[in-house]
């Protein structure tokens, strides 16, 4: 693997709630190489969104972040001054809800040039040129007139394109996309995904894609991190995860994807029985054991991490168990 662009070691996010401290992210570590797509997958409440917000220092006020290391291109992101210089310039983020992510009071153009002028500088005219160019790049026609429009005049799909264009204004090296297509309808989802893929190849952009949709992941991921209950349960290349899923949870997730030709017409879609455990307090042993068909008494003990090259998983069972 290339020298990582982003390195995360033992990242933790704790939230103070009325019933105690909720450990949303429980000491996760991963790297992102320049230009690669890392997908972080898991069900709702597994801590994947908290992870992305923690990287951008956008956590809600009740949340506390701690980590042994978060570095971007060798620079320490846990130091506020350094993070302030990188965020919105060399690392950018887009969100799940394009309908509400843009400020209703300002034009698209105004919002697009803002970060560029702040981080990069130059004249307003240059920034507006750049914005028009970026809108064209994300496939929005008559870009110049779009710049004068307000968010409420655009559809959801267009708004997400605008969000992407806006994120790319400063030519970042890393784009964090938190469920970027979840709120959109299926045809638009495919378009946005294709757009992200194309932009990545053109700009050499590294992408962290946060999603619950493994179908989406199979079309874009270089590497995959599977999260469950705030921890990483399996990590590997897309081929390793899809061809040789080692963790029962990963296999369960893959079994939930309907596949043309394989999945019987009219058959009920796969589900994983049970729910994600509450994340308040300590978790001993494997968090998935209550929902796992292969669970054994020793799953309640400490679980070793198993390695096969770039493929790691946290389970007592071997690769093809």
């Amino acid at each position: 693997m290339l020298k990582p662009l982003l390195s995360v070691r033992d990242l933790r996010v704790d939230l103070n709630t009325r019933s105690g401290v909720l450990h949303a992210v429980r000491g996760i570590s991963f790297d992102v190489a320049p230009g690669e797509t890392l997908c972080i997958v898991g069900e709702s409440g597994c801590g994947k969104s908290m992870t992305s917000l923690a990287l951008m220092d956008l956590l809600p006020r009740v949340a506390r972040r701690s980590a042994d290391e978060i570095t971007f291109d060798g620079q320490d992101l846990t130091r506020r001054r350094i993070a302030g210089k990188l965020r919105g310039r060399r690392m950018a983020m887009i969100f799940q809800e394009p309908m509400t992510a843009l400020n209703p009071a300002f034009t698209i153009g105004d919002q697009m040039v803002e970060a560029y002028l702040y981080h990069v500088g130059g004249t307003r005219a240059q920034a507006v040129d750049r914005a028009a160019q970026m809108l064209e790049k994300v496939g929005i026609g008559s870009a110049r007139s779009r710049l004068g429009q307000y968010p409420h005049q655009l559809s959801g799909g267009l708004r997400q394109r605008v969000m992407i264009a806006m994120a790319l204004m400063t030519d970042p090296e890393l784009l964090i996309a938190d469920e970027p297509t979840t709120a959109l309808d299926v045809t638009i989802q495919a378009q946005i995904l294709r757009l992200l893929k194309d932009l990545q190849q053109e700009l050499g952009l590294a992408i962290i894609l946060i999603t619950h949709d493994l179908g989406l992941v199979s079309r874009i991921a270089d590497r995959i991190v599977v999260m469950y209950a705030g921890a990483i349960v399996e990590e590997g290349t897309a081929a390793e995860i899809f061809d040789r899923p080692a963790h029962p949870y990963t296999r369960a997730l893959i079994d939930c994807i309907p596949q043309p030709g394989k999945t019987e017409r009219g058959a009920p879609l796969g589900t994983i029985p049970g729910v994600v455990p509450l994340l308040i307090g300590r978790q001993d042993g494997c968090a998935f054991r209550d929902r796992c068909s292969l669970a054994q008494p020793r799953c309640a003990d400490d679980i070793p991490t198993q390695d096969a090259g770039s493929h790691h998983w946290v389970c007592i069972h071997g690769g093809q168990a």
Partner: peptide
């Protein structure tokens, strides 16, 4: 709101996020 989070994600200084957005 989400749009204030977006403004923060753009790395704008806090006073601009608060007083503009």
């Amino acid at each position: 709101t989400d749009y204030v989070r977006t403004a923060r994600a753009k790395g704008l200084p806090a006073r601009r996020v608060v007083f503009k957005h």
